[in-house]
Design a protein around this nucleic acid. Structure first.
Lengths: 225, 225
DNA sequence: CGCCGACTGTCACAGGGGTGTCACAGGGAC
DNA sequence: GTCCCTGTGACACCCCTGTGACAGTCGGCG
C-alpha cells in the first residue's frame, strides 16, 4: 500500500484530497506548511509526495529542491496556475509530474500510480519501448535483439529522455541534462543529436514514433501504445 | 530458504522491510548499525546482506569494504540518492547491486533473487564464456582446453569482469576493484591490461567478442549468446 | 486559399577526444 | 643476477561531435 505525504495549506483541499486518496487505497500523511512537510518527510519517509506550489513560508519549489538534494522519491506538484512557466520551473526544481488545480481526485490518483509505476520500471535495470530495449547496466540499447551501437552522447540523450517517458523536454533542459552546460546559441546541436539517434532507433527515421517532436518546445519519448 | 541480514538504522524502514521480506519467504536477521551488522554477520553467516548506505558510525560503504576483505557473499546496497556517484562508489566498494530508496519490497525481492541466482552460477567453481573456461577453484583459465597462463593482474581483471557479466564497468571502477587505488591519471593502465588480456583470451584480439569496449564508459564481459 | 515567418530536418566537414598499440624501464620473485 | 610482470608515456588512428548553411515543414494571418 503506497504511503503518501500531502503538503497543502488550504484546509478544504487538504482534507478533501486526504479523504479521496485514502478511499483509493493509499496511506496518507498530511502537512499544512512547507516546514511541517519537510519535517514529516524526514520522520516518515513516504513513498511519494504531493506538493502544493503556493505555500506560506517556504514555497513548493523550494521544498522540492531541498528534498531533491538528498532524496530521489517521486514528487508531484499541485499548481493553481496553468501557465507554462510554472511547469518548467517545477520540472527544473526536480518534480516528476505536476497536476493543475482544481484537481479531480481520480486524476491525481492516476498520476500517482503512473509515477510510482515509472519509478519501479526505472529502478529496474532495463526498460522497453516497443522493440527498443535499454539496458542501463550493460549500457547498451538493442532493437529487435540487435545491438544498436549508440555513441556516448546519443546514449545519454536517450537515457535522459527515458527517465521521463511521455514528457516533453525543451532543448534547454536537454542541453543541461545531457551536455551539462547552459548556453544554446542558435545552433542545431540538440536537433542534430536527435536526428542521429532517430536514425538508429526509429523504424522510419523520417516518421518517428518513439522520439516525437513537440513543436515550439523540444522532444518527447513516447512509451509504446 | 535464503537467510538475509538487513542492516538499516531507520526503524520504520527496517521493520517494514523485515516484514515484507519475511512474507516473501526469506529468513531475516536485522541490525540497526554498522557495528551490530558486522558482528551479526560474523555470528550468523547470512546468505546475503541488504545494507543501507547512510548509517551512524561506520557507513554502508565501509561495512561493505570490510566484509569484502574476507568474504564474497552477495551484498545489495540501499541508497537514498540515485545519482550516479553513489552507484559508482557502491560498486567500487564491492557491492553486487544497489537499490534506490524509496524501495518497493517487490523490487527488492526481485533483486535479491536475481543476485542469489547469479551467485549460484558463480560459486559453481567454473564458468564458461564460449571456449574460455574460468576455474575459480584452480584459479586457472583455459581456452579450448588449453591453459592460458594469465598473469596475476590479468587474472584479477578477468575475475572482476566475470563477477558482473554483461555489465559495463568504468575504468575508474576497474581500477578500484583490480588495482585497489583511486587515482587514474590519463594513463593507459586499464587499457594496456585489457589489451594484454585480450591478446590471450580473444580469438581475434583486434576484433574482440568477449571483452567489449563500451565507448565513453569502459569495458564489459559479454556472456555467450 | 495563399503567403509569410518561424521552427525543424538534414547534411558535410573540420576539429578534437577517446582508444588501441607499443616499446621501455623499474621492480619484484626466484 | 636473471627473468618476467607491470605501469608509463608517446603516438597514431578512427570515430564522434559541434557547427553552420540550406531546405523543408508547419502554423497563423490576412
Amino acid at each position: 500500500m503506497p504511503f503518501l505525504l500531502l503538503i497543502e495549506d488550504d484546509d478544504a483541499i487538504r482534507t478533501g484530497l486526504e479523504l479521496a486518496l485514502t478511499r483509493q487505497g493509499h496511506r496518507v500523511a498530511t502537512a499544512a506548511s512547507g516546514e511541517d512537510g519537510l519535517r514529516l518527510f524526514k520522520e516518515q519517509r513516504p513513498d511519494l509526495i504531493v506538493l502544493d506550489v503556493m505555500l506560506p513560508g517556504i514555497d513548493g519549489f523550494e521544498v522540492c529542491r531541498r528534498i531533491r538534494r538528498t532524496d530521489q522519491l517521486p514528487i508531484i506538484l499541485l499548481t493553481a496556475r496553468s501557465d507554462d512557466i510554472d511547469v518548467v520551473v517545477g520540472l527544473e526544481s526536480g518534480a516528476d509530474d505536476y497536476v493543475v488545480k482544481p484537481v479531480q481526485p481520480r486524476v491525481l490518483d492516476a498520476r500517482i500510480r503512473a509515477v510510482l509505476r515509472r519509478g519501479e520500471r526505472e529502478s529496474s535495470d532495463s526498460s522497453a519501448y516497443g522493440s527498443v530495449v535499454i539496458d542501463r547496466a550493460a549500457m547498451t540499447v538493442t532493437k529487435d535483439g540487435l545491438d544498436l551501437q549508440l555513441t556516448p552522447t546519443e546514449l545519454r540523450l536517450l537515457l535522459e529522455l527515458s527517465r521521463r517517458p511521455g514528457q516533453a523536454l525543451s532543448r534547454q533542459q536537454l542541453l543541461r541534462l545531457v551536455w551539462e552546460h547552459d548556453y544554446l546559441g542558435d545552433s542545431r546541436l540538440v536537433d542534430a543529436c536527435v536526428q542521429r539517434l532517430r536514425a538508429k532507433v526509429e523504424d522510419v527515421p523520417s516518421a518517428p514514433t518513439l522520439i516525437r517532436t513537440v513543436r515550439g518546445v523540444g522532444y518527447r519519448l513516447d512509451p509504446p501504445a
